[in-house]
Amino acid sequence: MRVIFEKTNKFLALMMVVGFISLLAACGDDANASEGDNGDGWPDKISYGVLPGEEDTEISRAHDLFAEDMSEELGIEVELFQGEDYNAVIEAMRSKKLDMASFGPFSYIIAQERSNAVPIAVRAKSEEDATYNSWIVVPDESDAETVEDLKDKTILFADPASTSGHLFPRGMFIDELGITNDEIESYFSSVSFSGSHDNSILAIAAGDADAAGVCSTCVERAIEGGMVSESDFRIIKESDPIPSSPITYRGDLPESLVEAIKEFVYNYDNETYFEKAGDSESRYIPVDESDYDIIRNTAKNLDMSPEDLLSN
């Protein structure tokens, strides 16, 4: 009997140790879960990326306001990230350092391929108004009247991944001049990238470049913000309508978080934000990836992959 009793005590002690270890493991799992999410798979913080070139304008302050309002609505921190260039924002989402981002139409196409970006909405007054244009602009005192007059002149593009600051201007030059994409560099005396639409606009206003490809809404904002005057430049070519820049999310986010983000974006009505963003009458309108087929087709017509365009 004594032997049986001793064996029973040893067995009970062993079971208590195993139970204690299991309890510690369970507590550890709970602790890790509380550090990484809120119980629904949500992270404690999400990062929202925006493209470069708007740091000195009202729209920069609008980004801050949008992030603050989203944070309050979702109940988690929303951190704003300003990329040094378009590719930095794309790569940050690819490496999962960004959960959401505002892209230009073409940079969205690249982000979809590389970073699993999914479009949510565009900012516009209506579905019919959800487009903008690419402009080829020259200094007001320039003697250039058409793109043909730019031969052996200097041309500025905004960024390799910019839709209206690179992709569409290239397409316009090819169509208008009857040259191939490979011949663009030799047509001009200099082809370079300014880093942003704002930089290109300022360079044209200062007479530091002969021409630039820029987005119509960027120029309008620059004029409204007092950066440049309408008399500083002239438009010599305008593109066909381009679908507006989408807000996107990374495709592997928890479904419940995505639905909460969509609910916030589609119902967002902060008048101060929309006024700072450029139009107090605009709102966020849902979009689908198929809305950007024109961008895919334009890139295909240039016979350049995203890698080709980004390597310029």
Rank of each mutant, 00 (worst) to 15 (best):
S196V: 04
E148G: 13
I120L: 10
S194F: 01
K97I: 11
F106M: 07
A130F: 04
E77K: 09
F168E: 09
G195D: 07
I76T: 11
M100T: 10
T154I: 11
S164Q: 11
R170C: 12
S186A: 15
A111G: 04
P105C: 05
E72C: 01
N133T: 12
E73V: 07
F81M: 06
S190Y: 06
D140E: 15
R123Y: 08
M70R: 01
S186M: 13
P105D: 03
D152I: 08
K151G: 02
S194C: 10
N133G: 03
I184E: 14
V118D: 07
A161M: 07
I201Y: 01
D152P: 12
Q82H: 13
E113Q: 15
A92L: 05
D152G: 13
E113M: 13
S186T: 15
A203W: 04
G165F: 00
A121I: 10
E145W: 03
S102C: 09
D175W: 06
I120N: 04
V147G: 01
S192M: 05
N181W: 05
D129W: 03
V191K: 02
E148H: 12
E84V: 14
A121T: 12
L98R: 00
I110S: 02
R94A: 14
E128Y: 01
K96R: 11
A121N: 08
A206Q: 09
A88P: 08
Q82Y: 05
F81A: 02
E73S: 15
T146C: 09
A92V: 07
A144K: 03
K125P: 10
S162I: 08
P105F: 01
Q82C: 03
S71L: 11
G75W: 04
E79D: 14
E84I: 11
E91R: 03
S142V: 14
G83P: 05
V147I: 13
E141S: 15
D99A: 07
V118P: 11
G165A: 10
D143S: 15
E183I: 10
E148F: 10
L74A: 12
F173D: 00
R94N: 09
D140L: 13
D140M: 14
E141A: 15
S200D: 13
S189Y: 08
A117Y: 00
D149F: 03
V122A: 06
